[in-house]
Design a protein around this nucleic acid. Structure first.
Length: 260
DNA sequence: ATTGTGGCCTGCCCGC
DNA sequence: TGCGGGCAGGCCACAA
């Protein structure tokens, strides 16, 4: 499950693709091309040009072309970025380590012989030219307290669902959100708009430190709750049996004793 | 607008 | 040993 941390690793890896003239594009899977993007348009926009910047908004990776168009890459749950046969992450939870050539849904060959590839077994990711960037909320890795406040304000949705709503905060997925709320000792089911200022600041603090720490450790799957995130798991802090629920349409683990 | 639900995709794991 | 069902979750369409 690439979440914001994995896409940040991909963005750093993607620096290696900058300023290398593009010789050809392979987009064999039409289903993988989103919006009005098709193989012919991709070839027309990319070939002969180069990527000049690698940006990221939440889980969306953006490679800017010299001509002004942006190539948007979404990785879904199992998407992996490879450049010149190096991968952006060592291991992706739920993604296979196999490198089946059939799983390459999109690739860009550079004039120097190197290649950028998107490998995605389950085809939940996608490629789109000029994706709608303005539909994404504030980026979670640089989220300010004011941005968190405005993202939660007035919402009656469960706190977890609101934190994962990419239109309000971009980048948080299921594992990171469970980890953050567990560290902040907050019930994922609490109505998002009902946090008082003190509690909201606590959440903001844990959100920032969790992302920083897990980015250092190596990814979304390195959280402290992770080892217990299975049926029958118990809280790594207090030992209580963890609660397993569906919140915001996602399997959610929380400690009923500590998270209030 | 907000919130909830279902479906997409398919590899993998478990139980029989 | 093979098979079938459930599960994983990012994202979108849709309904109320």
């Amino acid at each position: 499950m690439p979440e914001i941390l994995e896409i940040e690793y991909y963005r750093r890896l993607a620096h290696r693709s900058l300023d290398r003239p593009i010789a050809s594009v392979s987009a064999p899977d039409a289903w993988y091309l989103k919006g009005d993007t098709d193989a012919a348009r991709l070839t027309g926009e990319l070939v002969g040009d180069s990527f000049v910047a690698a940006r990221r908004i939440g889980k969306l990776l953006l490679l800017d072309l010299g001509g002004g168009v942006a190539l948007g890459l979404r990785f879904g749950m199992t998407g992996v970025l490879e450049i010149d046969d190096d991968e952006g992450v060592d291991q992706l939870r739920y993604a296979s380590a196999r490198r089946d050539p059939e799983w390459v849904r999109f690739s860009v060959r550079f004039g120097d012989g190197g290649e950028l590839r998107m490998r995605d077994a389950r085809r939940l990711g996608g490629v789109e030219l000029d994706p709608a960037e303005d539909r994404l909320g504030a980026d979670a890795l640089s989220l300010t307290g004011a941005q968190l406040r405005s993202a939660l304000a007035g919402s009656r949705a469960p706190l977890k669902a609101r934190l994962m709503d990419q239109h309000h905060i971009a980048g948080l997925g299921n594992l990171l959100t469970d980890e953050i709320l567990w560290r902040a000792r907050l019930d994922p089911a609490r109505p998002a708009g009902e946090l008082d200022a003190t509690t909201r600041r606590r959440l903001h603090r844990h959100l920032c430190t969790t992302l920083d720490q897990l980015l250092e450790r190596g990814g979304s799957h390195t959280g402290d709750l992770m080892v217990a995130r299975e049926r029958g798991g118990s809280c790594p802090r207090c030992g209580s049996a963890l609660l397993r629920r569906t919140i915001g349409g996602r399997t959610t683990y929380s400690c009923p004793a500590e998270q209030r």
